[in-house]
Structures are given as C-alpha cells and as structure tokens.
Design a protein around this nucleic acid. Structure first.
Lengths: 133, 133
DNA sequence: TAAAATACGACTATATTAGTCCGATTTAGG
DNA sequence: CCTAAATCGGACTAATATAGTCGTATTTTA
C-alpha cells in the first residue's frame, strides 16, 4: 500500500507516550529504550517536534521533553509534512516543481490527481494524535 | 505527503488513455511517446497489466494492447498493490513480516494503525480508473 | 566540575524506486 | 522465408530517498 516513514511512525509512538504519560518530563533515552527506537534518531525527531512547539524541552541533566499541545490538536498531516516534506502525491505536484510537470501538453490526469491529493490531505488532517491514544 | 510510485502513475495515465481511445490496439511505443514515459518501463508495466488480464495483448508486428476490463472495475488499490506490493502502512504490517514487529511487548499504536490502513485501503479501492477519465 | 541531557549538522549505510539492457518469441507483409 | 516491429521476461544498473550514526557544542543540576 502506502507507507508512513519511520520518522512519522516514531513520532506517533512518542507523542502517544507523552499523551498518556503522567511524568512531567520524558527523555529521548527513556522513550527510545522503551520502544526500541534508535536513540540518536529519536533524539532528532524530538528536537524537531520541540522546534515546532509541539513539545517543550528542558536542557541539562534533569531535562527532557513535555507535550506543549493537546493531542487532539496534533494532526497526522502536520507530522507527515514536517518529516517527509510537502511532497505531492506525484512528483510534478511538489511544492517547487509544481507545474513544471507535463512536458507533454496534455497531462490528462492532473485534475483527478489534485482531487485525490486534497482528499488524502483532508483525511490525514482529520487524524489526530488523540486518535492513537 | 504520500507518494504514488511512477509505475502506478504511468499505469493510470496509460489506462486512462486506453479508456478514452477509440483505437482497437495501442502499442507501448505509442503511449510512451505521447506521454514521455520511458519506453522500456512502460512496456513492462503494460506486460504486467496484461498478465493480470486488465489488458489483452497481441504480439507481432501489428500487435499492441487493449482494455480487457471496464475502467470502473479497475481500482487504484489493485494497481498500487500490483506494483508496490502488499506493503502495510508501517513495516511491521507487511504481509510476511506481520506480527514480527513489536520487539517490545507493548506496541501501543497497533490498533489505530490497523484502522488507518483499512480506511486507506477502502479509500483507494473506491477510486477507479473511470474517476480519472 | 562532572554527568547527563538537549541541540545541530555532517556523514554513512541501506533500501527502494526508476530505468536500462539483452535476448527470446510472435506475427504480418514483401 | 526473411525482416521489421511488436510483446515477453529476467537480470542488471543507476538514482533517490530513507534510516541511522557520529561528533561536538551547549545547558543545567548536583
């Protein structure tokens, strides 16, 4: 079918864990151990989520991360776009490449593909972290 | 977002062309020229579709392919699975790997992910080639 | 001041996808 | 009966994207 990237998958796992966890702050190490996720990779993911204000972070020896948004306010679409980029469902619909496509005059599938993409985006934006809890 | 493979994209373009074309038989060369698709690649795609009885083929110098199914009977899900395989939305849900996942006991996102996958499959199986015509 | 955490960027390895190549078979027409 | 042009099929290569690693700096508390 169609595949979520590991970054997105790990994000969901981690964000769900933040959502259900009572702890004030959780560390990358803790989560990576619990779910067997490569530590360095998860660390970068949490850093990114932190940069996006989805998490807040504390540095230093007792530091860690904490949710900064409601799980119901974090959509899958946001996470996917964050880590996989704003790629269109086909190459020629990438943000920057858009309309560069169709070397041939008659790209006959453009309109239905645009519709497809919009529907998928709307689907993924309706899916929230809270749906995973 | 989430990306259709070239094989799927080319399939849609070609199948739509078959659907709207009046010609009895169309060749891989003809379609690849018209839409600027690498000939060898499209040839393999049409061969595969032919093997699946979606197209019928004639060999020999005046040969080519012709639709063997109604455009409304060819779903996007079928095409995607055909060319990209029966991959799950996450690795651990691949046909053969299934349940091998979750080295850790508590894969907390399994059920919602299964639901996600089922919904996407149902969406893609509702999309037919006729929707692109 | 040492330990343990985040922060950040460059790098490498792996997997997937896209595309090519070669040779075989089929078939119509000169 | 031979040639051209098509399908058939598998092995191969190239390009790209994803996954994961490494090194180093900074922050903070005990």
């Amino acid at each position: 079918m169609i595949r979520l990237s590991k970054k997105v998958e790990y994000s969901i796992i981690a964000l769900k864990y933040f959502a259900i966890s009572k702890e004030a702050y959780l560390t990358a190490k803790e989560i990576s151990k619990k779910y067997n996720i490569p530590h360095e990779l998860l660390a970068k993911i949490l850093q990114r989520l932190s940069k996006e204000k989805i998490l807040t972070s504390n540095q230093g020896i007792n530091g860690g991360y904490r949710l900064n948004k409601q799980p119901s306010d974090i959509s899958l679409e946001y996470i996917i776009k964050l880590f996989d980029g704003e790629k269109g469902i086909v190459e020629c619909m990438n943000g920057k490449n858009a309309n560069e496509c169709c070397i041939f005059d008659e790209c006959t599938i453009k309109d239905p593909i645009v519709k497809l993409q919009k529907e998928l985006e709307s689907y993924f934006s309706s899916k929230k972290i809270s749906d995973f809890v």
